[in-house]
Each structure stands twice: as structure tokens, then as C-alpha cells.
Write a protein that binds this DNA or RNA. Structure first.
Length: 725
DNA sequence: GACCTGCTGCGGATTG
């Protein structure tokens, strides 16, 4: 029985008859708004398209119903649709999802990633056709290993689909993907339509430019403004006693136990996600919550999920979530923020200030079953104050930063993704890959393809030239007398190792095993000794053997344990707008209705201290023998100021929202800051030249000084920050 | 004061 809504829809009529029949067979009540609009745009125009909607809004069908429609009855000699996804698990999900539709249309669907068998790969190479689902890394491998076959494989290519577009923007992987797609069009000598699937982003112009850099015509934006059914929001404040001042969030102390107790009371019996900001915090909250379950003789319903857990353990938890047949609360890092479909949960909790507003929005999107409001609980702890407390602690900056982000979330603002990045590291990878693809390339052609007309638009000819010289000096490349660039010995070796295909770097790790079963990985930060205890995967273990050669640690269950050190990260970048909103929170008396009593009390205390330190009248205050400056600007602007001051011989550090000068009076610090402010535009490359540790990305070690400085400056500094007030 | 993502081809053993 054909559904009436589809019968009357004009978009529906644009679809191929066999696609319409498939939709009838699914007994869908109607097509969603975003699907209607995407069908019209994809079948009615020739432009690139971005389909932007919340998780689980039917983006995949919105793109593939019209795309498959245009493939039916079409003769082909090669892959017709290239779909690129960021995760293997997502590719597997989409492969299953497309299977039904494509089987009825007789369109083959292939997947290609690290876990795909050699037989399946050979099948595609022998008979390329239909839809290919692939990761950026496997696409890179195709260019490196089968460079001469790329043209044949994609001869009939009609569409490139990029899933989770927002996850690629501004990253090394995103740059790699742009470069690969550009190189693909060069091989085919024609433009291929691009369709991006993205979460809702505030400013779509950056996403549009990412989809096809420097394009003369903008892509069509298909956007669903699904407002949802509202948010139930609550922010809980916690006061950390002075004796616990030194312990981190999630340690087994009184404050963490109070938060865990609150979670236990409110979440037990339903399905929820708890986002803790660090893997160590995930482990210790899972340990606290599962011990509460055990103590109450209840079945275990709290599980850990993060990137260092083995795939087996993560699958088990994801599977339990997908089945949804019993109450389950998963404590996780950003692993469950997006990607695979785990269905909606009843509520989401965030422990500590969220990394940024964009990430908070994604996390919130996981909550709110059909027709029900999303529920978000946020927990923030603040240290007890003593006579010796620093002003930046006394103003309760973590709490106020969290309030600022929640206010911006409710205003529907989110951070724009970074832009203007040089990406020197990924350029090295792409030069080496291009040589592998063609068996050699001239410097002129490489520059034209990658920089002049390609995605590395911030690298000019002189910079490219000094980069090539450095790569030659490091034996990564060499130049033939006729000008052709080839791999040097070291370059040859690098390209032939499987580690080459990813654009990002991964730390060395130990493998954790128990009884032959893989539990996960532990980055090699601190040495682990035999006989020591460990909390991992929400359980307690004793180390029985450490094999430093094979990098394997054997564990047995135990009663004791402590959370290991996972990483010494560099912290998150806070946006200007968040800091400005913090200032607005300090300078009004308004108390947001979502604050609980303790949070409201901490806010009152923070505002009192803000006024007591005269921060309502000045940005420079005395502190001991030195001074503090509160510019109410984001991380990049503050980094830039720190470097500008360093050039002037003024040594300062950044602590939260404050710039700290140890032995300089407020008036002197103010004069120096004003002098910096007068110096515009700021030469960020010259500033970067004075920075000590700039090697952060995979190929940074191989860059010449100029390219390294430019890369670093574009990532960490700002040439035109807001005025330093 | 952080998080996440990815990976080829071969040789040798085992199985049908």
C-alpha cells in the first residue's frame, strides 16, 4: 500500500521507479524534510551539495536515494560513487544500511578498509563498479600502491560522498582527503560532484569551502533545522575540600564519590551516556560506579568506553547499547560523541567543563528519544578557598566558563572550525605519495597540483622550494638531472611501510592482555612494573609480566588498583566568544535557572571575588610580587600575546583565563601589553621562530625552519587577534 | 589542562 505522504510529494516523483518501489516496501510513512530537499537538489541541479542535519535524521538516505536513482539503468566501467567515511565501524554500518536498497536495484556495494579481506579487494580491482565505501587512509594506499590503476578504477565516477564532513574540517586528515580528491580529479581530467553529510554547523561557509576549496560556485546547502523537543538542563556545583586540593578529577576521593553517588542515584535503571573529559577520569568513575553496584548487590550496569580499550571490549559495550534491552550507563570520552548509530539514550551527563560548545552540542544530540526532551546534567567542581588562593581560582573560572558555554549552546552558537592552516606536515606526505603514484614528478607540476591549484593554498613557491631542499637534505627525496623528483632511500622506506597512509601521528603503546584476551593499549608514558596494580576497562588488575621487547603487559584480576597515566595533553583551545561570554556572566547579577544551590552559591562567590579584585574596573591586578592580566580573549590570542611579550623580554605564563607575570607590577605589565597591541598586523611567523618545541604533527621533523614556523603560527597563533583591552 | 581516527603485501601454515 503506497503511503499517502510520499504519493503527493514532488521529490518522490523524481526518484527512479525502482527506488520508489523500494520505499513502498519499507512502508515509510513519509520522507523527512531533509530527504525531500536533498532529492530535489541532487536530481535537479549539477552543483555540489552539503546535507546538514542532526544525528539519525536520515542523512544517508537523503543522499543515497537520489544518487542510486541516477545510477539505475546507467552503464558503467568503474566505480560510480566513492563514499569516504572517518571510521571503519561507520563504513560497516553504512554498508549494511545500503545493502537492501542497492540489492533491489542491482547496484554492487563494496567496502575497503584495513579489516576487509584480500579477496574482497581483488574482486573490486578486477571488476570495479557501483558504490565503494572507503577510509581516507585506504584511499591513500590505493594511490600509493596502485597509482597507475586509479584512472581505470574510477573512470565512471559520478559522485564523491563525504560522511561526517565536520569531523574532517581543520584536521590533518581533512587536508589529506582534500588533496586525494583533488588528485583524483586530476587523473580523471574532470570535475566530479561532491556531496558532504554534516552535523549542523553554525557557519556553513567554512564547510562549503572545505568541500571544494576556492570553488567559483558555492555548494547547495540542504539543512534541516530540527529544533527537537527542548532541553532539560541542570548544572551541579561541587566544592572540593582543601585536603583534596592536589587530587585530580575522578580520583577516589570525597568529591568524586559525591559526584558518583549523584550519578548512581539518578542514572541507575535507565540508559545514559556520561562524558568525562579524560580516559583516566572515565576509568576512575567507572570503577567508583561499578563498586557501588556491587556493594548494593545489583547487576552491573556501568561500563567504560574510550579509545585505548580493545576493539572487542568496545564492541561488547556498543552492542549492549544498540540492543537497548536493559539499563546501561556508559562512561566515555569523545568516542561516543558521533559516528556509529547507538540509538538515543535517556540522558547525557558531562563531568567537568566541556572541551568546547560544538562538542557539547554533539553530546547533547545523543539524548532525547522521539518526542522527549533531551536531558543534560553537568557537574563542575571548584577548590575550597584559603587565604593563599590565587585570584584565578577565587573567581570560579571553571564554573563560569561552563555557564558561558551552556549559555552559548542555548543561543545555538558554536565555534567555527579552524581555517587558514598551512599543514606543512601533510604536504610532505602528499609530495611523497604523489611521487609514488606517478613514479616521479617534476617540482613545477607538484607545486601546481598541490599548492597553486590544490588545497595547500597557503604555501607559496619560495616556501615550497625550501621545503623540497630540506626533504632532499634528509634523503626523503632526490632530484634527477632532468629535474624529476624521486624518492630518496629514506623516503622509499617510509612510503613502503604501512604506517605511511595516515596523516596523523600515534604514540607508542603497550598492549594489555589478560589470559590471552586483549584489553586495550596503554601509551608508554611511565614505566609499568611487575607486581603493580592497575584500573583498566572498569576493572582492577595486577601486573604479572612486562615484555618490553614486544611491548606487552600481562594482567590478572586483583582487588587493588590505581588509574594509570594515559597522556600529558596540551589542553583545549577556548574561543574568544566563550571568554567574552564569561565576562558577561561576571558583570551581571542574573542567576541562570539551571544552576543547583551549590552552583549558584559558587557563582555568587566568584562574582564577589571578581568585584573584590576590582576586575569589574580593571584587567590588570597585583598578585604577590607580580601581576595578573585578564584579557577575556581565547587561547590563540593569549598564546600570541605571550610570544609578543617574550620578544620584549617579559616572561609570562597562561593560567586559565589569566596571564601571569611573576615579578612585574601591574602598571609595567599594562605598558608592555599596550605596546604589543600597537604592533599590528602581527608577524606570527617571526614570533613562531622563537618558540622552542614546535614539532607536533607527523612530518614536522622533516620541515625546513620557514615552513615549520609558518605551520606552527597558523595553528597556534593569530595574526589579527581582537584588541588587548 | 585532551580526545579521536587509520594501516599493505607477503610468506608460511592450514584446510578442503
Amino acid at each position: 500500500m503506497p503511503p499517502s505522504a510520499s504519493e503527493t510529494s514532488s521529490s518522490f516523483d523524481l526518484l527512479h521507479e525502482r527506488v520508489r518501489r523500494w520505499i513502498w516496501d519499507q512502508q515509510w510513512a513519509e520522507l523527512r524534510d531533509v530527504q525531500e530537499l536533498a532529492i530535489r537538489t541532487i536530481l535537479g541541479t549539477e552543483t555540489d551539495v552539503i546535507v546538514s542535519a542532526a544525528t539519525a535524521a536520515g542523512k544517508t538516505e537523503a543522499a543515497f536515494l537520489p544518487i542510486c536513482s541516477s545510477l539505475v539503468d546507467e552503464a558503467s566501467s568503474g566505480v560510480q560513487v566513492l563514499y569516504v567515511g572517518p571510521l571503519k565501524a561507520l563504513i560497516n554500518d553504512q554498508w549494511r544500511r545500503l545493502d537492501g536498497l542497492c540489492e533491489s536495484l542491482e547496484i554492487p556495494v563494496h567496502r575497503w578498509h584495513g579489516d576487509v579481506t584480500a579477496t574482497a579487494r581483488q574482486r573490486l580491482i578486477r571488476q570495479p563498479d557501483g558504490i565503494l565505501l572507503i577510509t581516507p587512509e585506504s584511499l591513500e594506499a590505493l594511490f600509493v600502491r596502485r597509482g597507475s590503476e586509479v584512472g581505470r578504477l574510477f573512470a565512471s565516477l559520478k559522485y564523491v560522498v563525504i560522511d561526517e564532513l565536520h569531523a574532517f574540517i581543520g584536521s590533518e586528515r581533512g587536508m589529506q582527503l582534500q588533496s586525494l580528491l583533488h588528485r583524483l580529479e586530476r587523473v580523471l581530467r574532470r570535475r566530479v560532484r561532491r556531496v558532504g553529510l554534516s552535523a549542523t554547523l553554525g557557519d556553513m561557509t567554512i564547510a562549503a569551502d572545505f568541500l571544494r576549496p576556492r570553488s567559483a560556485s558555492a555548494p547547495a546547502i540542504v539543512k534541516s533545522d530540527d529544533a527537537g523537543s527542548g532541553v532539560k538542563l541542570r548544572l551541579y556545583g561541587f566544592r572540593r575540600p582543601a585536603r583534596e586540593a592536589a587530587t585530580p578529577t575522578g580520583a577516589d576521593d570525597e568529591t568524586s564519590r559525591s559526584i558518583a553517588q549523584h550519578l548512581f542515584k539518578n542514572l541507575r535503571g535507565s540508559s545514559n551516556l556520561v562524558f568525562a573529559n579524560a580516559r583516566a577520569a572515565v576509568e576512575s568513575f567507572t570503577d567508583l560506579l561499578s563498586r557501588m553496584c556491587a556493594a548494593a548487590n545489583l547487576p552491573q550496569e556501568f561500563f567504560a568506553h574510550h579509545g585505548s580499550l580493545s576493539r572487542e571490549l568496545r564492541f561488547e559495550v556498543e552492542d549492549l547499547l544498540k540492543r537497548g534491552d536493559r539499563p546501561l550507563t556508559v562512561i566515555c570520552t569523545s568516542t561516543l560523541e558521533m559516528g556509529i548509530d547507538i540509538g538515543a539514550v535517556k540522558s547525557v551527563a558531562q563531568i567537568g567543563p566541556p572541551p568546547n560548545v560544538a562538542s557539547l552540542r554533539q553530546r547533547l544530540g545523543r539524548s532525547g528519544r522521539r518526542g522527549e526532551p533531551a536531558i543534560l546534567r553537568v557537574y563542575v567542581e571548584e577548590k575550597a578557598l584559603t587565604d593563599g588562593s590565587a585570584p584565578q581560582d577565587a573567581i570560579r573560572a571553571d564554573l563560569v566558563e561552563t555557564i558561558a558555554m551552556l549559555n552559548l549552546l542555548l543561543e545555538r552558537w558554536i565555534e567555527p572550525p579552524p581555517s587558514g592552516l598551512v599543514h606543512g606536515s601533510t604536504l610532505v606526505q602528499q609530495i611523497l605519495s604523489l611521487i609514488a603514484q606517478d613514479g616521479g614528478v617534476t617540482a613545477t607540476n607538484a607545486f601546481a597540483l598541490l599548492c597553486e591549484n590544490g588545497p595547500f593554498e597557503h604555501v607559496d613557491r619560495p616556501m615550497f622550494k625550501s621545503l623540497l631542499k630540506e626533504l632532499a637534505a634528509r634523503d626523503l627525496i632526490r632530484q634527477e638531472p632532468d629535474g624529476l623528483l624521486l624518492h630518496g632511500d629514506r623516503g622509499e622506506k617510509a612510503v613502503n611501510h604501512y604506517d605511511f597512509y595516515s596523516a596523523f601521528i600515534s604514540p607508542d603503546e603497550y598492549r594489555l592482555m589478560s589470559g590471552g584476551r586483549p584489553l586495550g593499549n596503554l601509551p608508554i608514558v611511565n614505566p609499568v612494573s611487575e607486581g603493580s596494580f592497575l584500573i583498566f576497562a572498569g576493572c582492577r588488575w595486577r601486573v604479572v609480566a612486562v615484555d618490553n621487547e614486544k611491548r606487552v603487559i600481562d594482567l590478572v584480576p586483583a582487588a587493588g588498583g590505581r588509574v594509570p597515566i594515559f597522556d600529558h595533553g596540551s589542553g583545549t583551545d577556548v574561543h574568544d566568544r566563550v571568554r567574552r561570554e564569561m565576562l558577561a556572566v561576571y558583570t551581571t547579577d542574573e542567576v541562570a535557572p539551571y544552576l543547583d544551590k551549590e552552583a549558584a552559591d559558587l557563582l555568587r562567590e566568584g562574582r564577589e571575588n571578581f568585584t573584590r579584585y576590582s576586575l569589574n574596573r580593571t584587567r590588570f591586578i597585583a598578585c604577590g610580587d607580580g601581576s595578573l592580566y585578564f584579557p577575556w580573549l581565547g587561547t590563540l590570542a593569549m598564546n600570541t600575546l605571550v610570544q609578543q611579550l617574550a620578544v620584549r623580554g617579559v616572561s609570562v605564563s597562561v593560567e586559565g583565563p589569566a596571564i601571569v607575570a611573576r615579578d612585574l607590577a601591574p602598571a609595567a605589565l599594562r605598558d608592555s601589553v599596550r605596546a604589543c597591541d600597537a604592533e599590528r598586523p602581527i608577524d606570527t611567523r617571526a614570533l613562531a621562530a622563537n618558540v622552542e618545541n614546535k614539532i607536533e604533527e607527523k612530518w614536522d621533523w622533516a620541515l625546513d625552519e620557514g615552513t615549520l614556523d609558518a605551520s606552527y603560527a597558523s595553528r597556534r597563533l593569530e595574526a589579527n587577534p581582537a584588541r588587548y583591552p
